[in-house]
């Protein structure tokens, strides 16, 4: 194998991994500035800050691989957190509150799945409406003001450390491995890829498409609510504003990672990288002292560019055929 073909291969795999490329570019850029960017503390902090949207992203990835999408996760997340805090404040044990929070998310996923999979509606718009509905419910429950808990044990869930590593990072790592195994090594995961790749073919080869896709929505709702409970425990408050932009951000991050909305392509590892890029961007911009509004501007441009590049690649492929 000649040198150029090796380079070609490296370039090809890198261009498929736009997110890795973005990380490399950002890290190189940060070398030129004298900041605290390259300290272990900063990287651990970035991992901790990103863990909430990563956990949501793992669940949503399963849905996206099935060829759908879930924008209601923001609402699901705030409802999960608020419910857990309310139950804890009503003197229920903290584990029960924890479970009830997750269960609420599973319920939302069940309804989403019914509408999208069983009734074959457009997932983007249905889940957008669902998110709106859930935001209203969250506001109604809390009267639109933050709700704090008085239970120390509930607070400890996300605020402790295991061997010097923040617990949120540990939870995220465990879920990362679990979802990786689910998609890579189980029959369910393979069915998800098959459904996303070609719905009709999957159906005709005997996969229970409706059940598989429905379960994907339940998984996504549950992880979103789990993230909500963890966030509520971390902040010790449940609030209706937590999930405002989460749904969009998570889905964007997943696409940035390389999981395609067309379905059947991608994986948990890709989503992890894609969502980490978002955190990396805001962290490095913060380090450089860029103001909040400029950050929003740059983030918007980056989202447009990366998703646009994704579209462009597919357009080129279509035209080549």
């Amino acid at each position: 194998m000649s040198m150029t073909s090796v380079l070609n291969k490296v370039w090809k795999s890198l261009s498929r991994q736009k997110a890795v490329l973005a990380i490399l570019a950002l890290v190189t850029l940060m070398l030129f500035f004298d900041t605290n960017f390259f300290t272990p503390y900063n990287w651990l902090d970035m991992l901790r800050s990103t863990s909430i949207i990563e956990i949501i992203g793992f669940g949503v990835t399963v849905v996206v691989i099935c060829g759908a999408c879930d924008l209601s996760v923001g609402g699901t997340m705030s409802i999960g957190g608020i419910l857990a805090i309310m139950l804890v404040n009503a003197n229920y044990p903290f584990w029960l509150a924890f479970l009830a929070g997750i269960l609420s998310g599973a319920l939302v996923g069940l309804v989403n799945g019914f509408l999208v999979v069983h009734q074959k509606t457009e997932p983007f718009i249905i889940t957008l409406g669902m998110g709106m509905l859930l935001k209203g419910v969250a506001q109604q429950l809390t009267n639109a003001s933050p709700l704090s808990s008085r239970n120390m044990e509930f607070m400890k869930i996300s605020n402790q450390q295991f061997f010097g590593i923040p617990s949120l990072v540990v939870y995220m790592a465990v879920l990362l491995v679990a979802f990786f195994c689910l998609l890579r090594f189980t029959g369910y995961g393979r069915n998800c890829y098959a459904i996303g790749g070609n719905y009709e073919v999957a159906k005709n080869s005997g996969i229970n498409v409706i059940r598989t896709k429905w379960i994907a929505f339940v998984i996504s709702g549950s992880t979103a609510a789990l993230a909500g409970v963890l966030l509520a425990s971390r902040m010790n408050t449940g609030s209706s504003i937590y999930g405002d932009t989460t749904g969009m951000l998570v889905n964007c991050g997943i696409v940035i990672g390389g999981t395609s909305f067309a379905g059947g392509i991608g994986g948990i590892y890709e989503s992890f990288i894609g969502l980490f890029v978002i955190q990396l961007i805001s962290n490095s911009m913060g380090m450089l002292g860029i103001g909040g509004y400029s950050q929003q501007l740059i983030r918007g441009i980056i989202i447009v560019l990366i998703i646009g590049m994704d579209c462009y690649a597919r357009k080129r492929k279509r035209e080549a055929v």
Partner: peptide, 10 residues
């Protein structure tokens, strides 16, 4: 949907 969302943010 996502591109116009990004534009909105811009």
């Amino acid at each position: 949907l996502f591109i116009t969302y990004g534009m909105s943010s811009v």
